[in-house]
Amino acid sequence: MSSTDFSDPTAMAQQAADFVRAQLLAPAGLDGIEVALVLGSGWNQGVDELGDEIASINLDAVPGFTKPVVAGHGGALRLARTASGKVAMVLTGRTHFYEGRGVEPVVHGVRTAAALGASTLVLTNGCGGLDPAWAPGTAVLLSDHINLTGTTPLRGATFIDMSEAYSRRLRELAREVDPTLPEGVYVQFSGPNYETPAEVRMAGVIGGNLVGMSTALETIAAREAGLEVLGISLVTNAAAGISGENLDHAEVIAAGKEAGPRLTALLQGILERI
């Protein structure tokens, strides 16, 4: 199987896991990981402070992965030992559905984490907020999501219970770090265009509080693999039509830079408890 052949996504994930195990884990005397993190837009600052580095490699060197195409994303797979002694895999970037390569590359990182033995997954993203009280820089725990991409990473008659897509236990743990964290429902659109004001209003009508272009598909794959998921969004801007201002990806990057130290402290605290 080539490094880009997703005809058998389970085998592709196993190939990536075998590579990481042989190239990065085995030299350190390790066989697998316990927790995985995907760092989205605005979340990459302070990645070196999330644990003692074991090894690191460019994402595009690992079978099935490519270099992130979005400004504000990193491009590394980093292994670290957290303050609680767990071995964590940190992906400093992700593949988005709007890149047009299909759903399998989008969830490849999640499936690779599962193949490496992870039981817990932390998914982060930058997003637009519908609640005017959530100023740019606000971190919001995900309580649920709505998938508007029109697709799924599941194949055939694969029926996965999504009643608790985002772990209540992990949300309570996150609030031990920051009791003020609000929570909301994330709505994934396909992108890459930002949502129109009418689409944002629709998202609110159907129960959404946050809008973005990632995470939901990854969560579905994670639940299929049996991973416990914690989702955290960084509100980088008010969603279209909320503030009356036009949207610009530079806002996303700027909000992430400003919130960087707080986001790092939040993730550090969570990793200490996982």
Rank of each mutant, 00 (worst) to 15 (best):
S190H: 12
F189Q: 01
V235Q: 05
A221P: 06
G231Y: 06
E224L: 13
P179D: 11
P179A: 14
A222F: 01
E183Q: 14
I206S: 02
A203N: 01
L181H: 02
V235F: 03
N193G: 09
P197I: 04
L170P: 10
A225H: 06
N193P: 05
T236L: 09
L210T: 00
G191E: 06
G212H: 06
N209H: 15
A216V: 07
A222S: 04
R171Y: 10
I232G: 04
M202P: 07
A222H: 03
V211T: 10
E228W: 06
I206E: 00
Y194S: 00
P182Y: 10
G184T: 03
A216C: 13
V229L: 00
P197K: 01
I220M: 10
V235C: 07
A222D: 03
T236M: 07
R175T: 05
R175N: 07
A203E: 06
S190P: 11
L170Q: 11
G226L: 13
Q188E: 11
N209Q: 11
D178T: 02
A225V: 10
L217K: 06
P179T: 02
E199L: 12
E172M: 15
P197R: 04
S214M: 11
S233R: 08
R175P: 14
L230H: 03
Y194F: 15
I206W: 01
A174M: 13
R223F: 04
A221F: 08
T219V: 15
E228C: 12
L170I: 12
A198D: 09
N237Y: 00
G204K: 00
R171T: 08
L173I: 15
I206D: 00
M213Q: 06
N237P: 04
V200K: 01
T180C: 08
V205I: 14
V205E: 13
G184A: 10
D178L: 09
G207M: 11
P192T: 00
P197S: 05
E176F: 06
M202S: 12
N209Y: 02
N193A: 14
P192A: 09
T219A: 15
G207L: 12
L173H: 10
G191D: 07
M213E: 00
N193E: 10
V200D: 01
T180I: 07
I232V: 15
Y186N: 04
S190F: 12
G226R: 08
N193R: 11
T219L: 12
L210S: 01
R175E: 09
R201K: 08
S233C: 09
S190T: 13
A203G: 05
E172N: 14
E218W: 02
V200L: 07
N237H: 05
E183A: 11
L170N: 09
M202C: 14
T236V: 12
V205C: 12
Q188P: 05
P192H: 01
T196N: 05
G184Y: 03
R171A: 15
A225M: 15
A225C: 14
E176K: 15
L181N: 04
I220W: 01
P197H: 05
Y194R: 02
I232C: 13
L217I: 05
S190M: 14
E195K: 01
M213K: 01
L227A: 09
V229Q: 00
E218L: 07
V187P: 08
S233Q: 07
Y186F: 13
G191H: 05
S190E: 11
E176Q: 15
